[in-house]
């Protein structure tokens, strides 16, 4: 299963980025191979519509779940219709490493 996490940077020590559409990086974590892939958010500085564009980007990676600090209303409804699970985690000091450890409970 593939899970996307919004990240403030491109290392495992980076913290979770609270913004879904305008986060710095997306981390794609594969729960089977344990592989992580950091990809800069292509829509970070988009003038408008960063949210829907980001949904499309993340969905194109075939993820089943997304972990972020918050999802906007429009984003929620789009992800809902795509049947991608949203996990809202509000502790902003959590690192990507810690999130991955939680996933491997």
């Amino acid at each position: 299963m593939k899970i996307a996490i919004t990240s403030t940077g491109n290392t495992l020590e980076s913290t979770i980025d609270p913004r879904f559409g305008r986060c710095a990086y997306y981390v794609f974590y594969d729960t089977e191979t344990k592989a992580t892939e950091f990809i800069p958010n292509p829509n970070k500085d988009a003038e408008g519509g960063a949210g829907p564009a980001s949904v499309q980007f993340v969905a194109s990676k075939n993820v089943n779940k997304i972990i972020s600090g918050e999802f906007g209303m429009k984003i929620k409804s789009l992800l809902d219709s795509l049947k991608i699970q949203m996990i809202v985690h509000k502790e902003q000091d959590k690192t990507i490493q810690e999130i991955i450890e939680m996933l491997n409970h």
């Binding site: 809902d80 699970q85 949203m86 996990i87 809202v88 509000k90 939680m102």
Partner: peptide, 29 residues
């Protein structure tokens, strides 16, 4: 929204259930 939302007592995260026909038993995180 069509999906239901849940909160985990341990890690306090919120999550939805996008698969209506399957029930959720544990925190996905």
């Amino acid at each position: 929204f069509d999906s239901d939302w849940y909160q985990c007592h341990q890690c306090r995260c919120y999550f939805n259930n996008p698969e209506k026909d399957k029930s959720i038993e544990s925190c996905p995180l």
